[in-house]
Design a protein around this nucleic acid. Structure first.
Lengths: 161, 161
DNA sequence: GGCGTTTCTGCAACTCGTTGCGTCTGGTCA
DNA sequence: TGACCAGACGCAACGAGTTGCAGAAACGCC
């Protein structure tokens, strides 16, 4: 695993955003260390969802001395700065979502494990619906709904079981 | 396999429902063992939400020889029979919900960890909203929305931070 | 460049939950 | 009553993630 081949994602603003990480850390009195650089490096080449252990693995590919506790602690810091967000998948594993440009929720298929985004408008509608009757502020970026996707439904319907 | 058989059971007959567990197991070619009796015993005296490890602890209080793997495997079986349902809390821990009389989702406060039920009507509205635009069958009993409850919001508002 | 402060790291130990495997036993049939 | 066998059990090892602590090092200051 190396610098080049990961997803050919980067929009210009995205790299710019990542370059700001160091400054943001300094501004908060936090430090810029080789270990954090490694993780930011990995994250900057990642799009969509990754689990915590996947990130640990990718960091180890760059620096084999990487330890899990450092990665998870750095992820906490980056989450506080808004560079990643996390939620728990169906199996309870942590899933990190890199650079949430806009707040959105997720649909999660419990059969195939697939994941799709819920549009901000839909998250908003759900939040409004629930907030209407009670005093509760819905965290719009944490809306995760599980069920079964079209493909898995088709497979199940086809199988007489 | 669904919750349908017990969904119609009124609350007074809850104990009766548990007495049926043995028969339901037999009907499925499964066995009634002392370990399962212990867990069913614990569950029959539990309402609302419990974590897996809490259940292990309570079983150990009755039978100190209880092992976690047996408890979790039995919970899987009971979930398949519809006697419990589980979802993952904010911290990724498993949370079991005993005897889901009707399908409902949850509101979860990320500050205090509190949990409230979402009415079936609301779960339904959310499901309808999401299923409208796409091919996806929402699992209505797994709708879990996080945010902050009124109390925690008040506390945060009061603190100048 | 050297120094002091404070954050961060790495390790080890821990929790929660899962899985593989050999052994045991509940339930059935003769 | 005894034998059989699939299902269940207990153990041990594992994976993901967390935490406490002692030592390392980033960074501001002189």
């Amino acid at each position: 695993m190396t610098t080049q081949d990961i997803a050919a994602v980067p929009r210009p603003e995205r790299d710019a955003a990542w370059n700001l990480v160091r400054e943001r850390l300094h501004a908060s009195g936090l430090r810029w260390t080789p270990q954090r650089r490694t993780l930011v490096d990995v994250l900057s080449r990642t799009s969509g969802h990754v689990t915590g252990s996947e990130l640990v693995d990718r960091c180890r590919a760059i620096d084999p001395a990487t330890t899990p506790s450092t990665v998870y602690r750095t992820l906490d810091v980056l989450e506080e700065l808004g560079y990643v967000s996390h939620h728990h998948g169906m199996d309870g594993r942590e899933e990190f979502h890199v650079l949430p440009i806009e707040e959105h929720g997720h649909l999660h298929c419990r059969s195939c494990g697939g994941s799709w985004q819920i549009s901000p408008a839909e998250s908003d509608a759900i939040a409004t619906l629930l907030e209407g009757g009670r005093s509760f502020a819905v965290d719009r970026s944490h809306v995760t709904i599980t069920g079964r996707c079209a493909d898995c439904l088709a497979v199940e319907a086809a199988r007489p079981d």
